Amino acid sequence: MQKISEILNSPTAPAETGARASSRPTTSDAGNWIWSNDERLAGHPGVPEPVPCEFCGALRYHKGIQLGNRILWPPYGAERCTCPEAVAAYEKAKAEREAAEAAAAKAEEEKKMRERIKRIVGESGMGDRFLRRTFSTFQLTDDNKRAAAAARRYAEGFDAMLPQPGRQEPGRNGLFIAGPPGTGKTHLAAAIANHLIAQGKPVICMTMIDLLERIKRTYSA
């Protein structure tokens, strides 16, 4: 029986060209790669056993790398089979993995956005008072029910008013709430912002008094 060092230093057969079926018996690739079904490895300990394809049953071999006088067999196991069923299963699993990674990345991005919005809300001076102002806590009266309905429609249709690639600019998309004292203008503005914040939208809302105070601090510095 040859020693591993002798096998690694002996001439190898020419590498195959074109697409290789991982389930087909092979010889060593050119360079430092060697396949587990290389006939020169027969009987040597440590050579991983082939794994049958779960779809077509063909044997899948392991591809090792030569490091000095040793062979390192990568931990991912036998190479993939190239039968149509195995390829389709791999592509499906890959797509599902990429979708899960994209969803996780989106969730992390939305989490960071919510944290950023929370900090902005805190800096506005509204804090808990702001967060408690929602549509469900708004007290309806005969004088403010029209304003409340308009504010809710605005919040629920907000996405349609945003600029979209390939679509005509929506134009004026703000909402001006006016009315006598008791209309609930500040509450409704906060309710709109809280509705959008819950959906991860980048929204900043503050009362006119807070806004004027911030402008005053900015330009007096």
Rank of each mutant, 00 (worst) to 15 (best):
G174P: 00
L72E: 08
E110Q: 12
R172N: 03
L59D: 06
P50T: 01
R97H: 13
R116T: 13
C56T: 12
R70C: 07
T137G: 01
A105E: 10
R116P: 02
R114Q: 14
N69L: 05
G122N: 05
E98Q: 04
K63C: 14
R129G: 14
E115A: 05
F135V: 13
Y90D: 06
M161R: 02
R119Y: 15
F176H: 08
A86E: 03
I71E: 01
G77Q: 08
E108G: 01
K111D: 07
I120N: 02
G157K: 05
A105R: 09
E49G: 13
A58R: 13
L131K: 13
G125P: 00
A100E: 02
A147V: 11
P180L: 02
L140G: 01
G171Y: 09
T134K: 06
T137L: 13
E115S: 05
A100L: 06
L162G: 04
V121R: 08
R114T: 12
C53A: 02
Q66D: 06
G166K: 04
D142E: 10
G68E: 07
Y90A: 15
L131E: 07
L175E: 00
W73P: 00
E96L: 14
F55I: 09
F130A: 07
R146A: 10
Y154A: 01
M126S: 06
K92L: 15
A89K: 12
Q66I: 15
